[in-house]
Design a binder for these strands. Structure first.
Lengths: 178, 178
DNA sequence: ACCTTCATTCAAAACGTTCTGAACACAGGG
DNA sequence: CCCTGTGTTCAGAACGTTTTGAATGAAGGT
């Protein structure tokens, strides 16, 4: 294969590995995704194993993780007994899948914990000494701030997840916050 | 101290530790930040060491990291020789500091790598065999998609970073993407 | 100048995470 | 049925990251 193609492949795969780490996935997942993304044909586990020089076990486990996150899918190649995979090429789809599965739950539980805290504080209010009262007010204030922050995050998340039509990034001209 | 106050403190500190991991920081940084956030008075390194039951060295290093990220600041307490810290209580400020320092650079370099790739591909175009030509087109297409994605990320980032007045989360009513 | 108090640094240890490779399981074909 | 090709699992190894604790450094007080 031509040097330029090889170089581009390598830097893209490396970059997606980096991106994966950044999002809290393993680097190998990103590299597998990148390799599939730059392959016109679906690839078998052996292909991936060879291209990335990693063990069969690692390919197997990481590919299943990619499937769970909707970042790759199994594809049947006629006449082949082996499994073949291809990347989900729609980035927007990938983002939505990750956000809705992970960050959404994260924000949700954070909000629950904060509500619990506020409730717990209020139900203990009468039992507090004068000194504790001061701390009580301080806590309520700070936790209110945290709640506001997470509510904002939730809103932003739901907005992004709710916009189906955003498949074409080029069409995005502006985000307005007001 | 009252049980409720203690319980709330603990779950909040734990939650912020979790959040810190989520953002790619160490858990201790989040816990330190949370402890400071829930303290009406600035705290010394020894205070933090005792409250979180971690070594002095760890407190020292992690606090400097927090300072670098604009999440805490040193505070002078009169009559005290020791250093005291307080948390930056403005979440929005914290977010902006992190985004502008880290994710921004990340997106920037990703875009540069992708531009380089496209350039490299085009300058090699004439030297390619017929088979490589097909791959060339495929690569260009996929890398264009990645570019669109990162350009969107950049736009979103700059929009958020550019909106100074967003200090009050409550005022945020809607994000419009169109 | 010395002593004390506090902060920082860094090498080694503890810890967690990810990868490997061999063992296992499964399916189809002969 | 057994054999072969394939995918999965998991214990141990390898690796990276974070913490510790002791040594070092800095600064104030006497």
């Amino acid at each position: 294969m031509h040097e330029a193609l090889r170089a581009v492949n390598e830097s893209t795969v490396a970059g997606l590995g980096r991106l994966a780490r950044f999002f809290g996935f393993s680097e190998v997942m990103g590299r597998l995704y990148g390799t599939l993304l730059l392959s016109p044909e679906p690839l078998s586990l052996d292909d991936l194993m060879e291209q990335l020089q990693i063990s069969k076990g690692s390919v197997s486990m990481n590919m299943r993780a990619l499937e769970r996150w909707g970042m790759a899918r199994e594809v049947w190649v006629r006449g082949e007994r082996r499994k073949f995979y291809e990347a989900e090429p729609d980035m927007w789809q990938v983002i939505r899948s990750v956000l809705s599965g992970r960050e959404r739950r994260e924000v949700q539980t954070a909000l629950e914990v904060l509500s619990d805290s506020i409730r717990k504080l209020h139900s203990a209010e009468t039992e507090l000494t004068a000194e504790e009262q001061a701390l009580f007010h301080f806590y309520v204030e700070r936790i209110d701030d945290l709640q506001a922050f997470f509510r904002f995050a939730q809103l932003a998340l739901e907005t992004v997840l709710g916009s189906e039509e955003m498949v074409d990034f080029e069409a995005v001209t502006k985000i307005e916050i007001g």
